[in-house]
């Protein structure tokens, strides 16, 4: 007796299992493919398996240019293949299929050899996010005037979605900036050169700039949604009596269009 025809679900699971063998368990029965000229049909599935691998490698190489440059094409392909086994794409947009690469790298063997790699990947992901982010009308420096200091303490600032901070113990901005140079021409001192990089977008141009440690601490807390009051407490703990020029920083940030609005937090009347 002939085997029953496979259902559409069976077919798709079976094909999926052949394209992503390491990540898919096929629960489907056998699906028969017609021979293609003199080749068994199943052999032709390699076209799709290779295509999947090639597309992921290309998509991630476009986002992670610097990681690609540091590793070289062969090692980068290995990285993408092992990443795809751990994080098979669940995003409809191929452009964003590498969103988990920084997280994947943190605990991988790759960072044992290149300890800056996860931070570098994080920087490149933030650059990608900034490139595509929506942009809102920013507040102006003038709009900060007239706010009393007491009010400021209860204020939570909302930043442009393109603004992010990447803190690293390594000079990741220097490494990123030479990503288009031949690997053999790159010579960067890695020792004791921590970088705090702010990623933002001005008009259509993504910018990466270094900030000092106090500014990074302040930004990190504000980006995480803390009020200025909470942030200043943390800053005074970290900076001691040398109070940093917070107002000057805010002026610079608003000049660069990073802040889109602020919200007053509720006062506990009890």
């Amino acid at each position: 007796m002939d085997a029953p025809e496979p259902s559409l679900r069976d077919v798709q699971r079976w094909i999926g299992a052949h394209i992503q063998p390491e990540t898919t368990v096929s629960t489907a029965g056998d699906v028969r493919l017609n021979p293609q000229r003199n080749i068994p049909g199943i052999s032709r599935l390699s076209v799709y398996a290779h295509g999947y691998q090639a597309r992921l490698r290309q998509a991630l190489a476009e986002v992670y240019e610097s990681v690609h440059q540091v590793l070289g094409t062969g090692a980068f392909s290995e990285l993408v293949d092992s990443y795809a086994r751990r994080f098979p794409s669940r995003d409809y947009n191929l452009n964003f299929s590498g969103r988990h690469l920084p997280e994947f790298l943190v605990n991988s063997l790759w960072v044992q050899r290149l300890p800056f790699l996860a931070d570098l990947a994080q920087l490149e992901w933030q650059v990608c996010q900034a490139f595509h982010a929506i942009s809102y009308p920013p507040i102006t420096p003038a709009s900060l005037h007239g706010q009393s200091f007491e009010d400021w303490h209860r204020v939570r600032f909302i930043f442009q979605p393109s603004v992010s901070l990447v803190r690293s113990a390594w000079p990741i901005l220097d490494i990123w900036e030479v990503r288009h140079r031949p690997r053999s021409e790159v010579n960067i001192d890695l020792v004791e050169r921590p970088h705090n990089v702010v990623v933002s977008r001005s008009e259509l141009q993504v910018r990466c700039q270094l900030v000092n440690l106090p500014q990074a601490i302040l930004l990190e807390a504000l980006l995480a949604g803390q009020t200025l009051d909470e942030t200043c407490e943390r800053l005074s703990g970290d900076c001691g009596e040398n109070l940093p020029p917070i107002y000057e920083w805010f002026f610079q940030w608003t000049q660069q269009g990073w802040i889109v609005r602020w919200e007053q937090t509720h006062v506990d009347s009890s």
């Binding site: 699971r13 094909i15 597309r55 669940r90 995003d91």
Partner: peptide
């Protein structure tokens, strides 16, 4: 794609 995984290809239907 199937079962939430995207294969990023234009795969044939029966």
């Amino acid at each position: 794609g199937v079962d939430g995984k995207n294969l990023h290809d234009l795969l044939p239907l029966p």
